[in-house]
Design a binder for these strands. Structure first.
Lengths: 247, 247
DNA sequence: CAGTAGGGATTGTTGAACAATTCCACAAGA
DNA sequence: TCTTGTGGAATTGTTCAACAATCCCTACTG
């Protein structure tokens, strides 16, 4: 035990700005890591809405015990990504029309409030512009999947203007839930593409420090998106449910 | 097996308004019931902020296995009522000042948006008035505990004006978290009492269909409450942490 | 007095076991 | 044909016991 030892000295009293990294240091439990894997798989459509997640199969595949896996399931159920039916197991959730409407109801409240409050803080806006540019680039190269995620990020940045940790978390969950909706829809590509110009308009207002103006545009944006989504979604969700039942 | 049998015929295709009762049929798992018990205990102050919840002790006391109990812990951790430290166990959370500020930031967004949208729907307002009256009665009889809960209910009803399931859930969690704050504070009685007249003012505006007016009052209300709370809370939270550390 | 090496207690995770429930196919009856 | 039991197989719900990993505290050493 006399090998080379790299000694790391950390001053215990005054290390400014380091406490924020505490979260990065803290290891995560197995259940949380498993939940992370499943969350990603659900987001990318590997597990489709309505599909059942078998404890045995997934437990074996991931090499974790049933108990640990069940803890992960609980986590995702709480995020509304999975639906838990007693003695039947967990299923990837199929959001209902009411869910879609409610999601947009909350988005209108949250995002509009965040945007309304802007005056002139150039620092924050760079992140928003970045997301708009990514969306443009994705549309130009025809990369529809990236376009969708860029659009999601754009709205998350808008919500982040509120500067609230809880708002960020809430919006993160709402968008994850929306992904389920998009997986059921037929053609998400065209859906997102329509709104690219409006992203620019909103960004312009924000950069001009015109909060209320941006809010007005954003509200119309969300109302239109919701209407279009509900229309296209109505029979799709039923079809998905029927497909699962028939399978 | 030839006793009286009450035969209930259910048409499989067209049973209007029955699907809504689906939730009532579904029983709850043990973990959820355990979480319910713990949630109530935390709310009423049986488990104080900073206290550790031993898996062994509570598992024995409630007669459930460690695995089931751990599932319940996860649930409450996700609601920010418990804090989970790896290999150290779960503790009743001690909200920080930043948490208090952030909670009020979200409350301002949510509650003000809900109130702003009112025009004139007398049906809904009865529930709000009910809560105000309960608060008055509690103050008159000197029942300070009921006064606090009545006040919480009042605000939950305000948020419910948004008509969003997700908003209701979010506000429910925020108020549960606020209860932790109140448990740390010295004198919650006087804190709530000060705001009773303002409840009436806000209710008046709502009943008059004056959404923006009510919003203005509510925003001031929340700003004042936050300021007072932060001021009174600053050293209290540290004291609670120190007390736990010393214990 | 600082640092460190045990040792006890608690949590993290697994595997197995059994009970409870659901699902599915098939037979029986109207 | 359609509905209604009735088995058994499969899956989930829950508990238990065991061990590894980690933390906390004490006592020892320099």
């Amino acid at each position: 035990m006399t090998g080379t030892i790299v000694e790391v000295v950390i001053e215990d009293s005054d290390v400014p700005g380091l406490e924020a990294d505490r979260g990065l240091v803290s290891r995560k439990s197995t259940a949380e890591r498993v939940a992370g894997v499943l969350r990603k798989r659900i987001a990318e459509g590997f597990f489709l809405p309505g599909g059942r997640l078998s404890e045995q199969d997934i437990g074996n595949a991931l090499g974790v015990s049933r108990n640990t896996l069940r803890e992960a399931f609980r986590l995702l159920t709480h995020e509304r990504l999975l639906a838990h039916e007693l003695n039947r197991g967990v299923f990837v959730r199929i959001p209902s029309i009411e869910d879609v409407v409610d999601i947009y109801r909350v988005r209108k409240i949250i995002e509009c409030a965040a945007v309304r409050g802007v005056t002139a803080k150039p620092a924050t806006f760079a992140r928003i512009k970045e997301k708009v540019d990514i969306g443009d680039e994705a549309a130009r190269t025809g990369n529809w999947k990236d376009l969708g995620t860029a659009n999601v990020w754009f709205h998350q940045e808008l919500a982040a203007l509120s500067g609230s940790e809880r708002v960020n978390e809430l919006v993160g969950r709402l968008t994850a839930e929306l992904r389920l909706v998009f997986h059921i829809m037929a053609e998400p590509r065209r859906f997102h593409e329509r709104y690219l110009p409006r992203n620019h308009e909103i960004l312009d207002r924000i950069e001009a420090g015109d909060g209320p103006g941006a809010e007005q545009l954003l509200m119309k944006y969300l109302e239109d998106a919701e209407e279009q989504l509900v229309e296209a979604y109505a029979d799709r969700a039923d079809a998905a449910r029927a497909a699962v039942a028939a399978d």
